[in-house]
Design a protein around this nucleic acid. Structure first.
Length: 207
DNA sequence: CACCAGGCCCTAT
DNA sequence: ATAGGGCATGGT
């Protein structure tokens, strides 16, 4: 529906006018260009933020940083018990320690490092990420969009809410909304990053 | 005290 | 296909 595309584009420019360029907690995720260290941190944060308050994620990240383990290599070599203790504040720490280990193993061993992973075609990489235990569509797309600069639109709870509120779509399944938003705006990772960040910033502001 | 936060998986209909 | 429960912490 072309009308929906219009609503989505209008929403984007409205959010841009309201909030400008995404800042604050999105200073890392929306920064361009990113260093390797930043990409690795985003990957780690994508796991830690699953159903967690961002404040708690930040504490877990500080703990990892203080321990010198805020990177794929650090996660991979860290003792499991130690890892659990460090990420404790982000919640679900037993699951998440496994998921972190798994994703670090994937990028380092299966891909042969982050630079090799960057060469893998988006759709293939997405399938590989989704095959990992504990990596669902949103986490996979967070990593693709914000860590690896792939033009993949992220759908989350805030995207669903605003889609209903703005009458963009009453169907809020992941694929439906992703298709809708992806098609409505220019396929550019910078635009996708900023738009999704703005949706979340707006969602948090309204409560 | 109850509820929520930038999910995901497993199980039972 | 879809609904419900479990995972866990810290803030309001």
């Amino acid at each position: 529906m072309a009308g929906n595309y219009e609503k989505i584009r209008a929403l984007y420019s409205r959010l841009r006018k309201m909030y400008g360029h995404p800042e604050g907690q999105w200073a890392l995720w929306c920064r361009r260009p990113k260093t390797d260290e930043m990409r690795e941190q985003v990957i780690i944060e994508a796991i830690l933020t699953q159903r967690a308050n961002w404040r708690n994620v930040e504490q877990a990240v500080r703990n990892l940083s203080s321990a010198g383990l805020l990177g794929l290599k650090g996660i991979a070599t860290a003792d499991r018990q130690m890892l659990e203790k460090l990420i404790l504040p982000s919640g679900f720490y037993r699951q998440k320690s496994c998921r972190l280990k798994e994703i670090a193993r994937f990028f380092l061993n299966e891909c042969g490092g982050l630079h090799q992973a960057m060469k893998i075609p988006t759709h293939l990489l997405r399938e590989q990420l989704l095959s990992l235990d504990g990596i669902g569509p949103e986490t996979a797309d967070d990593i693709l969009l914000y860590a690896l600069d792939r033009p993949v639109f992220v759908v989350d709870e805030y995207t669903r809410r605003i889609s209903v509120a703005e009458q963009i779509s009453s169907v809020t399944s992941y694929n439906t909304l992703q298709e809708l938003f992806s098609s409505a705006i220019r396929k550019d990772f910078r635009t996708y990053q900023d738009f999704h960040a703005l949706i979340v910033i707006n969602g948090k502001a309204g409560r």
